[in-house]
Design a protein around this nucleic acid. Structure first.
Lengths: 153, 153
DNA sequence: CTGATATCATTTGCATACGAATGAATTTGA
DNA sequence: TCAAATTCATTCGTATGCAAATGATATCAG
């Protein structure tokens, strides 16, 4: 038996479960599953829009016209991702784009009337989605969870 | 005015900001950002493997040979997704697949010696990744967070 | 004023993620 | 037993998500 084996046995003896790596205890894995569950709940309430698409509309509704790049920063999407999201919203007539008068690099994005109508209609559903996502927790637990989650995001 | 409207007005009166929908307060949005941050931390420590690929290797290391479908269930991936993950791990020689002797529908998946060596080498890094992901929280907060997160996943 | 830098947007390539449809094999139930 | 239902895997289509490269424009520094 090698020295490494001996050491390993000592470690095992101390801990009892040192060798066992349990995926389901890792924060990344649980985070991924919780996110999956939320997306599924979202889809069950809002079937014709994805969470990123909803985020883009909601942010435009909140702050008004802005550049594609700035919008991406605000909703945590890189330039390549936000372009795809905006392209699809544009194809559906929910947003419209225009060139910035001064800075010719910028692409301005804004809600269309249809987009505004859509997001106003959907925001109440989004509140329901949030409630359902947090339903396994008590109100106090939910508050604690959101506070700690925000620290990690 | 309906009863619902009345209730809503009461809530608004209590809250004072009912009309304003803030994306950054929604659990789904924060969950998405926290997940993004974790993936980024993961990539900074383990550049040549994605979290889903790591999950597949870790689970195979934990339970040994299993069917592709069963593996997918254990690591929370649907059949289409797990196929892609296994295909890429197979192409890199980290897993090998074989046909189930009895049930000819099943595709058995197992670690290769290289895959086993890889996951044993990476598990300590994964512990570091978990620590770094939870670093913004105190030990007590982290324990609370994991407990509540697990309830949501 | 101008060359170096920085910013904005686009494109490509790769990797999840999932719904839906399909085909093969197995299990169930009348 | 045998038709119906189920399970396993694959394929297709669509939608994030990000790294890297590129081009256009704007800003900065000397």
């Amino acid at each position: 038996m090698s020295g490494e084996d001996n050491l390993l046995r000592l470690v095992e003896a101390e801990d009892g479960d040192e060798n066992n790596y349990h995926l389901q205890d890792q924060v990344g894995f649980i985070l991924r599953k919780a996110h999956q569950r939320h997306v599924s709940i979202f889809a069950s309430h809002i079937g014709d829009l994805t969470p990123p698409q909803f985020a883009a509309l909601a942010k435009l509704y909140d702050i008004g016209e802005t550049s594609q790049n700035q919008l991406g920063t605000l909703i945590a999407m890189d330039a390549a991702t936000v372009k795809g999201v905006i392209d699809r919203l544009k194809a559906r007539g929910l947003v419209e784009v225009s060139k910035h008068e001064v800075d010719k690099r910028r692409l301005l994005v804004n809600l269309t009337p249809e987009g505004r109508e859509a997001i106003e209609r959907l925001i109440p559903l989004a509140r329901t989605i949030t409630e359902e996502t947090l339903a396994p927790l008590t109100a106090k637990e939910a508050a604690t969870f959101l506070r700690l989650l925000a620290k990690l995001a």
